[in-house]
């Protein structure tokens, strides 16, 4: 145990934790929104994120963007990747809802059936990238990790004391927070957002009041998917890598973040994600990096012991959501 390492580098570790947590939080939104409306844990959401990272790889490859690219190209490639990843992930999320969940809903299937279907969808998507696409197109698909070109090169923006702040960290934290503020405003202020909250609160009454429930559910999958796509872009900018099963760990962590903050609660996803990221990095600093998960889950258990609905409570439907 080395508490000095934590205290000496507290600023840097906090920044690392916030960077890590921002991506958890963005992915957590997808779990939390779907849960808020459908009371369903969409385990295929981790693969929606994975599709986002592959889309970024595709866009960079097609545009020929890499570390040598000039500034206009970097901006163009990043924006294109942002839009493409959000669209691709949203489409996959929507496809999962239309193909897998909707037919079950029409038949009033019990919750357990949804759960196993979600896990099945997740495995199908993983195998599409790990196996099926490889059979048809060969590399880079398959099970080996793939390098994603990095048009945005990491460099130090400013140094405060010992804390080195990089452009990538700023980009990720700002990007994630901006996306979440936009989503929060959308759900709380817009007409469509009111529909989402209405269905979350009471689906039957909402339907009686003229809210199209299927449309709201589609909207929720699209929004959650788009957020996961953006998370895919931020992730590849930071780590330059993707893999067929890259979503697995991130998905579990994001789901944990959602539960920690209060599943069904948008702001809870942000709080839970950032807290989880910071706890993991602090634990890594004090012990060693392989203590990150143990410590994070102990914190989760402790929080749930005293606040079973998570830090901010389950409340997509409530006005303060």
């Amino acid at each position: 145990m080395d508490f000095n390492a934590l205290i000496d580098g507290l600023g840097g570790h906090t920044l690392d934790g916030l960077t890590r947590g921002s991506i958890y939080a963005l992915v957590a939104l997808g779990y939390t929104m779907v849960y808020g409306v459908l009371r369903l844990i969409n385990f295929a959401h981790s693969e929606v994120f994975m599709v986002g990272t592959w889309t970024v790889l595709g866009v960079y490859t097609v545009l020929g963007a890499d570390s040598e690219s000039a500034m206009p190209m970097v901006i163009f490639a990043t924006l294109t990747a942002l839009v493409a990843a959000a669209l691709a992930s949203a489409s996959v999320a929507l496809a999962v809802e239309r193909i897998a969940y909707r037919p079950l809903r029409k038949k009033n299937a019990p919750p357990l059936i949804f759960l196993i279907t979600a896990i099945g969808c997740s495995l199908v998507l993983v195998e599409i990238f790990g196996h099926v696409l490889k059979v048809f197109f060969g590399a880079p698909f398959g099970r080996a990790p793939v390098n994603v070109p990095s048009p945005i090169q990491t460099h130090t923006l400013l140094t405060i004391g010992d804390v080195r702040i990089t452009n990538v960290q700023v980009f990720i934290i700002l990007g994630a927070v901006l996306m979440m503020v936009a989503l929060d405003l959308f759900v709380n202020r817009s007409r469509l957002g009111r529909g989402v909250r209405a269905v979350a609160q009471d689906p039957d009454t909402a339907a009686l009041m003229g809210v199209n429930q299927d449309r709201v559910i589609m909207l929720v999958f699209i929004l959650g998917g788009a957020m996961a796509g953006v998370a895919g872009l931020l992730f590849t900018i930071n780590f330059d890598i993707t893999k067929f099963d890259i979503g697995f760990i991130i998905g579990i962590k994001a789901f944990t973040a959602a539960v920690l903050g209060g599943i069904g609660n948008l702001r809870g996803a942000l709080v839970g994600g950032l807290l989880l990221g910071i706890v993991e990095v602090y634990a890594s600093a004090v012990f060693s990096s392989n203590w990150a998960d143990v410590t994070a889950f102990i914190v989760l258990v402790l929080v749930l012991m005293f606040r079973p609905t998570g830090l901010l409570g389950e409340s997509l439907g409530k006005a303060r959501a």
Partner: peptide, 11 residues
Amino acid sequence: KTQVAQTDFSP
């Protein structure tokens, strides 16, 4: 000491 399947090595 790190973990298998880890991607963020910032600590």
